[in-house]
Nucleic acid binder design. Structure first.
Length: 768
DNA sequence: ACCGTATTCAGCGCG
DNA sequence: TGAATACGGT
C-alpha cells in the first residue's frame, strides 16, 4: 500500500507527501497534475484520515468522476467513495440544501440555469419598460454575475455610491434596481442561479458560526484542482473553510488560465504565497505527454507573457516531428487540407480516428471542417453543441418536474403552463404575473386561487388554469410516495407531452420523442441504482435516514441542474475525430492535434487586442491548444475566411511568429495537398480571383497590406548587423541569418522586447 | 392563438 | 450566412 508513491517522480512525490498545511502545486501542462491529486487523496486515506473529512473540488463533474474512479482503483476498498468530490457548485449546492433554511431557502430550492436567468432578466427589463438595447439582457446578467462573484449583494450594490456613479455614467443607472428585482424574484421562486450557489455559501460561512465550525470540521483536508480558474467568491469560500488547519492543497497552472473573461482571477494563484505565508510550493515541470518539439514550441510561445510564475517545462520524450504549418487560400480549403492531412496520417500511421483532434477558437469555424470531413467519410464528433439537457423537449419535461418539486418555480411555471397548448395564452399569463407582483405572491399562489384576484380572465380559461393546478398538485403529492421513474412516467403522460411529441412524425419530432424516452431511461437508472452515501448528513454519515426507501424525483432533480453534456456524451463515443473549441479541450490530450484558423483577429480574437491582459489570455489559450498534442501538431491558417456572411482577408496570427521557427515545418503549397480533390471540385480555380477582387473591396476595413514599408518581400536583403524595424516589436538589430528560401530566419535583438527568432517569410521588417 | 416574415446579431462557456 | 427572436397579419 505504501509503495503507491513509487509511481511518482520526485516532485510529484514531494507534493503528495506534504499533506499537512497549505500547499501549492504548479503543474505544467502534461506534468501529471491529476496524478498528483489522485495520489494525494489516496495517500491521505492511507495515512488513516477519514474519507468523510476530505474535500476535493474539481472544475467539472466529469473530472470529479474520473478522479474518484482512479482513487478507487488505487486504494482498493470502497472507502474512497466517501470522499466529497465534485465541483464547487455541486458540493455547495448540497450544503445549501441542508443549511439554506437559515437564509430563507427551503431544501427543495430550484437551481436556475443560465437560460432561466436570461428569461427572467428579460422579463424584468420589459416590465420596467426599459430599452433592451440599452439594458441588453446579457450585459445586465454579466453585471449581476460579476457582482455576485465579487461578493456584492443587491443591497450592497445599491448602497455603493461608486457603483451607482459608474452605472450612471455608462448610461445605465437602473442596473442596481434590476439586480435587486432579479434577486427578489429568485427568492420569491425559491430559486438560486449558479452564482448564488457560491455567494450564499459564502454568506452562510461568514454569518453563521455554527455552520462555519461544522464545515471546517467536516472538511479537514481540502484539495482544489484548476486553481487558476477559480474566482473571488470561490477563493473566499476556501479561505473560510480552511482558516483553522490550513490543510489546503491547490493545483493549477497559471499558464493555462483561460477563464478570466468570466471572472476567474489569476491573482488567486499568483498570490497564494501571500495568503498562506507557510505555504510550500512544488513545481511539476517534467512533461510526460508531448514530444520535445511540441514542449519547446509551447515554451517559446508562453515566454511572451509578462504575468507568469517562472517555470521551464521539459520532457524526456522523443524529439518528434516538427510542428507543421499549413496555409490555405480560404476556410473551405483549410478544411480540405486538414481532412486530407488526417486521411494521410491515418493511412501512414495506421491510426484510429480518435487519435485526432481539431481545435478551433470559435464554434463557427467547425462548419467548413465538418464538410471536408464528411466528403472524405471521416467520422467525427463535435463537442459543445447543444447538450442533451439543453434541448427544448428535455427542458420542457424537466420544467414539469421542477414545478412538481417546487411549485414556486416561476420560470418552470411560465414554460409549461401552456405547453402542450391548453389555452392559457400570453394575455392570461400577463394578468397572472401582474397580480402576483401586486400582491407580492408567487404566480403559483395566484393561480391556486385564481378567482380571488379579480384577474379578469374569462371563465373558460379560469377552468383550464384550475385544471392545470390540480394536475401539478396531484404530481406533487406523489413525490414522496412514488419512485422518480414512476412519477416521471406519469407526468410525461398526464401532461400530454408524450402525446404531443408522439403526434409529430417529422424526423425531428421522432428524435425529440426519443430524447424524452432517453431521459426517462436515465431516471430509471437513477431509481434503480443505489444512492451514493451522503456525506452531507452529520459526521459519519454512513446511514442516511432514508437509506432503504425509494429514490424520488426531487432527489433526481437535485443533481440534474448541475449536470452537463459531459455526462451523456462519453458513452456513445466510438472511433471518431474530435472537433471542439480550445476551451473545451482543456485537460484533454490527443496524439495528433490540428489547430485551425491561426489568424489575426480570430486568434488572437479581435476583442482581445485592446489590452495586454486579454491578449495574454489569448496566448495562454494558444499554449493550452498546443500542449494538448502528444505526437504531432499541425497549425493552419487561411488567407480569406467567410465570416458573418462576408469574405474577409486574413493575416497569419502573430502567435505563428512567436513560435521559435526551428520547431516549424513551413507551409506546404496548397497545390500539393488538394490534388486528390481536383476532380470533385472546381473551388480551387476561383479562389485566387475571388481573393484578389475582395482585397480591393475590403481595403478600408482590413489592415493595409503594404503596412508602411513593412514588407516581407525583402527577406533576401536582410543581413546580420543591419538595423531593422518590425511592425510590432519596433527597432532592433539583426544578429544572425540562417536557412534558405521559405525557411530563412533571423535572430534579431529588439530594443523593446529582447531577442526574437523571426521567420522572414512572415516577419514584416523594414530595413533602416 | 398561431404562423410566416423581418430583423438582428455574431467570442470562448464551467455549473 | 443562419439562428433566434420580434413583430404583424389572419
Amino acid at each position: 500500500m505504501a509503495d503507491i508513491l513509487q509511481h511518482l517522480n520526485k516532485e510529484q512525490r514531494d507534493a503528495v507527501e506534504a499533506y499537512e498545511g497549505p500547499v501549492m502545486v504548479i503543474a505544467g501542462a502534461g506534468s501529471g497534475k491529476t496524478r498528483v491529486l489522485t495520489y494525494r487523496v489516496a495517500h491521505l486515506l492511507n495515512q488513516g484520515i477519514d474519507a468523510f473529512r476530505i474535500l476535493a473540488l474539481t472544475f467539472t463533474n466529469k473530472a470529479a468522476r474520473e478522479m474518484k474512479e482512479r482513487i478507487l482503483k488505487l486504494v482498493g476498498d470502497g472507502n474512497a467513495r466517501n470522499v466529497w468530490m465534485g465541483t464547487f457548485h455541486s458540493v455547495f449546492a448540497r450544503v445549501l440544501r441542508s443549511e439554506g433554511h437559515r437564509l430563507g431557502f427551503p431544501s427543495n430550492f430550484t437551481i436556475y440555469d443560465s437560460d432561466d436567468s436570461k428569461r427572467l432578466i428579460k422579463t424584468i427589463i420589459k416590465e420596467n419598460n426599459l430599452d433592451d438595447k440599452v439594458y441588453m439582457p446579457n450585459f445586465v446578467l454579466g453585471r449581476i454575475s460579476a457582482a455576485k462573484t465579487n461578493l456584492i449583494t443587491a443591497a450592497e450594490y445599491n448602497d455603493s455610491f461608486e457603483i451607482k456613479q459608474q452605472d450612471t455614467m455608462s448610461g445605465k443607472p437602473l442596473l442596481g434596481k434590476l439586480y435587486q428585482v432579479y434577486a427578489n424574484r429568485c427568492r420569491r421562486a425559491s430559486a438560486m442561479d449558479f452564482d448564488d450557489l457560491l455567494l450564499f455559501t459564502y454568506i452562510l460561512l461568514r454569518d453563521y458560526d455554527d455552520v462555519l465550525v461544522k464545515y471546517q470540521r467536516k472538511f479537514q483536508y481540502v484539495l482544489v484542482d484548476e486553481y487558476q480558474d477559480t474566482n473571488r467568491v470561490q477563493y473566499m469560500i476556501l479561505k473560510k473553510l480552511v482558516a483553522n488547519d490550513e490543510n489546503i492543497c491547490v493545483v493549477g497552472d497559471d499558464a493555462q488560465s483561460i477563464y478570466a473573461f468570466r471572472g476567474a482571477n489569476i491573482q488567486n494563484i499568483l498570490n497564494f504565497k501571500n495568503d498562506y505565508p507557510d505555504a510550500r510550493e512544488f513545481k511539476l515541470e517534467q512533461n510526460y505527454r508531448s514530444t520535445k518539439t511540441i514542449v519547446k514550441a509551447a515554451n517559446s510561445i508562453i515566454v511572451n507573457n509578462k504575468d507568469q510564475i517562472f517555470k521551464e517545462i521539459w520532457t524526456r520524450n522523443d524529439e518528434g516531428d516538427l510542428v507543421q504549418v499549413m496555409k490555405a487560400g480560404t476556410d473551405i480549403e483549410e478544411g480540405r487540407m486538414v481532412a486530407n492531412a488526417i486521411f494521410e496520417q491515418k493511412m501512414n500511421g495506421q491510426l484510429p480516428n480518435d487519435a485526432f483532434a481539431i481545435l478551433y477558437r470559435t464554434n463557427a469555424q467547425s462548419r467548413s471542417i465538418e464538410e471536408a470531413l464528411r466528403k472524405l467519410n471521416i467520422p467525427y464528433r463535435i463537442y459543445g453543441g447543444l447538450s442533451f439537457y439543453n434541448r427544448k423537449e428535455i427542458k420542457d419535461l424537466l420544467a414539469y418536474f421542477r414545478l412538481t418539486v417546487n411549485n414556486k418555480d416561476e420560470e418552470a411555471l411560465k414554460r409549461v403552463i401552456n405547453y402542450p397548448a391548453r389555452g392559457i395564452g400570453k394575455t392570461s399569463l400577463q394578468k397572472i404575473i401582474i397580480a402576483a407582483d401586486q400582491h407580492n405572491l408567487t404566480m403559483w399562489d395566484v393561480i391556486c386561487d385564481a378567482g380571488k384576484y379579480a384577474l379578469q380572465i374569462n371563465s373558460g380559461t379560469l377552468t383550464r388554469i384550475s385544471e392545470f393546478v390540480t394536475m401539478i398538485k396531484s404530481f406533487s403529492v406523489q413525490l414522496k410516495t412514488h419512485s422518480a421513474f414512476d412519477l416521471a412516467k406519469l407526468i410525461t403522460s398526464s401532461s400530454n407531452i408524450r402525446k404531443d411529441l408522439f403526434n409529430d412524425k417529422s424526423p425531428e419530432g421522432i428524435n425529440r420523442y426519443e430524447n424524452v424516452e432517453e431521459l426517462l431511461n436515465a431516471i430509471k437508472d437513477f431509481t434503480e441504482n443505489e444512492r451514493e452515501p451522503d456525506p452531507g448528513k452529520d459526521d459519519g454519515g454512513e446511514v442516511s435516514e432514508n437509506a432503504n426507501s425509494i429514490r424520488t424525483l426531487d432527489e433526481f432533480m437535485q443533481d440534474v441542474a448541475l449536470l452537463t453534456d459531459a455526462d451523456s456524451q462519453d458513452k456513445n463515443s466510438g472511433d471518431k475525430v474530435t472537433l471542439m473549441t480550445i476551451h473545451a479541450a482543456k485537460g484533454l490530450e490527443f496524439p495528433h492535434v490540428f489547430i485551425v484558423g491561426i489568424e489575426e483577429n480570430l486568434f488572437p480574437s479581435i476583442q482581445s487586442l485592446g489590452s495586454r491582459q486579454d491578449l495574454e489570455e489569448e496566448r495562454r489559450l494558444f499554449y493550452v491548444a498546443i500542449t494538448r498534442a502528444e505526437k504531432k501538431l499541425t497549425l493552419s491558417y487561411a488567407e480569406t475566411r467567410y465570416r458573418w456572411g462576408n469574405t474577409t482577408i486574413c493575416e497569419p496570427s502573430r502567435f505563428l511568429e512567436e513560435i521559435d521557427p526551428k520547431y516549424i515545418d513551413f507551409p506546404r503549397k496548397p497545390v500539393l495537398r488538394i490534388h486528390s480533390e481536383a476532380k470533385t471540385t472546381s473551388a480551387q480555380m476561383p479562389v485566387p480571383m475571388a481573393h484578389r477582387k475582395l482585397k480591393k473591396i475590403k481595403k478600408g476595413i482590413v489592415p493595409p497590406e503594404g503596412n508602411g514599408g513593412f514588407e516581407n518581400a525583402n527577406s533576401d536583403k536582410i543581413q546580420p548587423g543591419q538595423q531593422v524595424e518590425h511592425s510590432r516589436f519596433g527597432k532592433g538589430k539583426v544578429l544572425t541569418v540562417e536557412g534558405e528560401g521559405a525557411s530563412k530566419k533571423a535572430a534579431i535583438f529588439f530594443n523593446a522586447v529582447g531577442q526574437k527568432q523571426l521567420l522572414l517569410k512572415y516577419a514584416k521588417l523594414k530595413i533602416l
